[in-house]
């Protein structure tokens, strides 16, 4: 070969073909489906805004590096036996999200249906605050930075205050309690919204991949 031009056209053409197939085609295919999702109004819109804020907290703190959000077919793995979902995930399960956090690693359990499996906000706050307090043996980092340390007014801690030790104390020696911040509230709203395989989808009913 003595000419760059031939090589140049060749490597741009090979690249273009995959770009069209794996990037542009899905954009048109899934983009047109997404338009059909109704935009929430009223109180639902407020909740939706909180969930979308929580999605950003999920992104910013890298939850995706340890948790997947995709259920594999019962014929491929045993996600159903770990109670992570009743059916396999399909692309439409992620409509309306800003980003589909499918994840690549299961250092922690799958979260595609965590809102259905663990539906108590209090549990999630306590788990984020001190993971081993709800899940002994966990190596998830404590997310204390998502909580605010505040002086207790009166003698009782607020109902939502975190439990600080095995005795169930909610007030520390200096008379302070820990309350969820706005970011924590948004994150928990997002987690509770994750019920991805609850809606039946015809495409999930298809014959499994193998």
């Amino acid at each position: 070969m003595h000419q760059f031009r031939t090589i140049f056209l060749g490597f741009l053409a090979t690249f273009l073909s995959a770009w069209l197939g794996l990037v542009i085609l899905p954009v048109f295919h899934y983009g047109s489906e997404a338009k059909a999702v109704p935009v929430p109004t009223g109180e639902l819109a407020v909740e939706e805004a909180l969930i979308r804020h929580g999605e950003l907290v999920y992104a910013a703190n890298g939850c995706v590096y340890c948790h997947t959000q995709q259920v594999r077919s019962p014929s491929y793995g045993n996600d159903d036996k770990r109670f992570w979902g009743d059916r396999r995930s399909v692309a439409a399960d992620y409509e309306g999200d800003r980003f589909a956090f499918l994840g690549t690693m299961r250092t922690g359990p799958d979260l595609a249906n965590v809102g259905q499996r663990l539906s108590s906000a209090g549990w999630h706050y306590q788990h984020l605050f001190e993971p081993t307090s709800t899940s002994p043996g966990s190596i998830m980092p404590a997310h204390r930075f998502l909580f605010e340390r505040r002086k207790v007014v009166g003698s009782e801690a607020d109902a939502e205050a975190m439990t600080l030790d095995a005795e169930g104390n909610k007030i520390d020696a200096e008379g302070y309690q820990w309350l969820p911040s706005d970011d924590a509230r948004a994150l928990v709203a997002y987690l509770l919204s994750l019920k991805r395989t609850v809606t039946p989808r015809p495409e999930a009913e298809e014959a499994p991949l193998r």
Partner: peptide
Amino acid sequence: MIWSPVAAPAQPPMNWW
């Protein structure tokens, strides 16, 4: 994906592309 994100279901294929 970042400046003007497309619909979420279309993103993972391009993420891994």
